Amino acid sequence: MPSLFDPKHVRRAFSRAATSYQAAAVLQQEVAKRLLESLDYLEEKQPQVVLDIGSGPAYSTAAMKKRWPKAQVIALDLAMPMLVEAKKQAGWWRPFSRVCADARALPLADNSVDVIFSNLCLQWVEDLPAVFAGFRRVLKPGGLLVCSTFGPDTLVELREAFAHADDTAHVSNFVQIAQFGDALMMAGFRNPVLDRDLFTLTYDDLPALMRELKAIGATNAMSNRRHTLTGRGRFAAARDAYEPLRRTDGKLPSSWEVIYAQAWAPEPGAPIREQGHDVAAVPVSAIPIRRKPRE
């Protein structure tokens, strides 16, 4: 069965976006700030090794190195050009390590990391339980995982607009919050806490939205995507379908659902899945939605 996502396309898209990402990724930086606040769960504990998976240009990596100057902080990203940009964040006074690798195959030893931080990277991963199992492998017992991903309400307006143009998927599929929680439990993580936000960004027109998606590398990475240009006719059909959503301020809205999770690695010898316990689904009704407009 073919993979849902094309990892080579993901690498190319983020490599091309390396120089434009920092300026365009306003939402990503806002989500990163909220994730960084989650590190207060460590209280006074000083981690020895911190891993930022999908670091991009290392905005969060630099913040964690500032927070824990004595720790070994590692920026890991699939795209080498992102790590070149990350070097600018490090500086000679707070250097951190940079590793080009895939989140699905972490090149780190078992039980070697105290904190894994991953901001808006996991939406490009198809097999979440397998990836989380890899995260658990490298985390020390009791280590902390703090991560975020996009939920299914992300770019829903764009998805529906292009559905009027053709039958090809133009927006990647994003995981439900309950599935995200299930994947953590399946990998053996303990005490997961999930939350979500729904942001609304606005744009002058559809081309402006598409330019921003390209600037942050968030292009359609699905394996069954159209491999030819969209074409003027299909783009015009999508534009016309989007237009009725224009707001009274003259802007077009774009929804971005963000799922946050915190979880702890189990003690040594804990099974991947406890006997007698099914996967603990997280009811959507129990998850608060904080609606944060960003315009």
Rank of each mutant, 00 (worst) to 15 (best):
R104N: 10
R104E: 12
K214I: 02
A25E: 11
T149Q: 02
S97N: 07
P2Y: 00
V99C: 14
Q275N: 12
G151F: 06
V258R: 08
V10R: 02
F174K: 06
D205K: 08
A208N: 03
L106P: 11
A163Q: 15
A281V: 13
E243I: 03
I272T: 10
Q275E: 13
A86C: 05
Q176A: 15
G250M: 12
Q48D: 08
I216T: 15
Q179R: 14
E37P: 00
V84M: 10
E267D: 10
D40W: 02
A178G: 13
P47I: 07
R196P: 01
L83K: 05
C147T: 15
G142W: 00
E295A: 15
A270I: 06
S97G: 04
W93G: 02
E257W: 12
L36G: 04
E274R: 15
S15Y: 03
T168P: 09
V156D: 06
V113R: 07
A103Q: 00
N220E: 02
F235R: 02
F180N: 00
G143P: 06
K140P: 04
F14K: 01
A286W: 12
K70N: 13
R98V: 13
P283T: 10
F5P: 01
R137V: 03
V146L: 12
Q22F: 11
R234A: 12
V115W: 11
D197M: 04
L42M: 08
S118D: 03
R226N: 14
F135W: 09
P288Q: 14
V26I: 14
V50W: 01
P141R: 09
D182K: 11
E126L: 03
Q29H: 10
L120Q: 01
T228S: 15
M210S: 11
L144N: 00
R34F: 14
I74D: 00
W93L: 13
L209R: 03
S148P: 06
W92M: 14
F135H: 04
L145F: 06
P2A: 06
A133L: 12
L27H: 04
A161E: 05
P141G: 08
M82E: 03
S15I: 09
P57V: 05
G231D: 09
P192S: 08
V10N: 04
A183D: 13
S97M: 08
A237K: 15
P253I: 00
S118V: 07
N191V: 13
D77T: 01
A236G: 06
A62Q: 11
A263S: 06
L36T: 01
T230D: 06
E85F: 11
S148C: 11
Q262D: 11
L252C: 06
A58H: 15
P192M: 07
K8I: 08
A270T: 14
S223W: 06
R239H: 05
S55A: 15
A17E: 09
D197H: 15
I177A: 13
S223H: 08
Y41N: 09
S3Y: 01
A105K: 14
D102P: 08
Y21A: 04
L36R: 03
Y21R: 03
R234S: 04
L229W: 13
